[in-house]
Nucleic acid binder design. Sequence first.
RNA 1: GGCGCGGUAGCUCAGUUGGUUAGAGCGAUCGACUCAUAAUCGAUAGGUCGGGAGUUCAAGUCUCCCCCACGCCA
Length: 551
Amino acid sequence: MTQNTPTRVVQTIALAYANGDLHVGHLVEAIFADCHARHRRARGDDVVFLGADDCHGTPIEIKAAAQNQTPQELIADIGARHRADYAAFDISLDHYHSTDSPENEALCAEVYRHMQEAGLIDRRNVAQLFDPDAGRFLSDRHVKGGCPKCGALDQYGDNCEACGATYQATELAHPVSTLTGATPVIADSEHLFFRVSALEPIVRAWAQSGTLQSGVLAKISDWFDDGLRDWDISRDAPYFGFPIPDEPGKFFYVWLDAPLGYIASLIAYLNATGSSRTWRDDWGEGSDTEIIHHIGKDIISFHAVFWPALLTAGKCRLPSRVQAHGFLTVEGAKMSKSRGTFLLASDLAAHVDSDAVRYALLSRLGDFTTDIDFSARDVVDRVNAELVGKIANIPVRLRGLVQDPEAVHLSDTLLDPALWAECAALADDAVAQFHAFEPGQAIRRIVDIATRTNGFIQSHAPWAQTDLVARNAVTTQALCQFRLIAALLQPVSPRFAQRCLAVFGTEAVAWADLSTPVLGTTAALPTHLMDRLDAGGIAALFNQPATPKEA
RNA sequence: GGCGCGGUAGCUCAGUUGGUUAGAGCGAUCGACUCAUAAUCGAUAGGUCGGGAGUUCAAGUCUCCCCCACGCCA
């Protein structure tokens, strides 16, 4: 491996909305990001891997009220469950925070002050639907009515699912509040607008500088072509969020404080670890910290347009990379509660080995935004054929060929240096693929090493050799290559990789040490490293009705 | 409706700036081996590259039209 200079990396997963439990779709992103974080650590980088719950907005307020809870009680409860779900899949977050935190409130006020000083705040009157019974303005999703274009009934306040038209909620025919059933009235209110349009050149230059995947850039380019619109960042009381300084009765829109929650999480992390750094050392203008956001394709616009604008206003550095991924389908279709394919992370964790889930998902992930599928058949086939059959099987099959499986002395030389060189090259390539956000490609290289290793054992037929030295030469080379595989699986299936590395008495292998064969050392061969998955068990999990925890 | 991304072997996908008989993995079939978790290794079969037209000595690869699927529209 070539040596790399260590880089400071701040990596985030998208904030999870605190009104429901995590499902397997959330896991895709968390596992993808965690794989990258573990890769970067193995590379020697200084990684801070952050997450947080997104806690503000009307839906959470309404849900809490329906459950006779305060919003704070609801988000504390959900936050604990989210942490447990991430932990069950070994997501190695350094800190998990909440957007409803003092750090975030102070940060929002600071960024807002910078906006004001830079003349980036406008005041405009906005006509909105107001529910007289609930005493509040209605968001688009809380009002239904007839589409003004095609007349379709029962459409939400922003667009029509029947004809695809977009419009203002105030244009709806016969609007009805979904909160109370009351007929809303149109009322005026003054709103604060963030003048995103003034920052367009900066945002556009950033977006075109290689920070986005090409498909993502194509997707948002028409926003730039049409000209960026200014962004309404205020909401009227009652609203669960942060009050805007010196603006009685007005609150920051949830999408303003949510991404700032990434930075709030960093602040809390630095405080908790007693670091001498300040958050601006990483996120201030001029910082050379690499900042990577992992997101789903549904929130590309917020992260590729509003977020860089917000950071610019707040005198912060812009992200190095916005890494978007596609959605997860289950058994070839959108997750569905009625079809029994709405998989909660907690249910999955209870029934399927987390390393197996990680392996199966990462095998399908890469640097693209197309959707990927998760099917019982695929998970079982892949894990049993590759992880168990081809990989875990290697040290186990060698067990019967050595005199003392608990203390195998590896020889000092390689029997087939050319084969080792090929495997080392594949390993280098796998690391490069991890780095390029292509875990699926990395795994193909890893399996390739395993196939070559099994073929090597097969062709030398050590079981037919009576010369113990010759037999040991085969064992030595096979184990050196197995250790390469074990090390490369650290970002993919960490617990399994650790069991594999324990064969050599080590816990972790850095990329810098990858291509040094473990000649002359001692290994202890296991009888078993990984259970085969039972197809029936997983199928049963998929078909069970989702536990009614609400999502 | 506008825009975007796709449509390649049963399945999941590779196919670089157009260039020899279109590739890989899984699955299937056959064979080998027996150290191993019905494991592993090898071989074989399988595609009019969504449809049509065009440019070219040459097109999965470029142009146009159409069909289908998915996504986005703040």
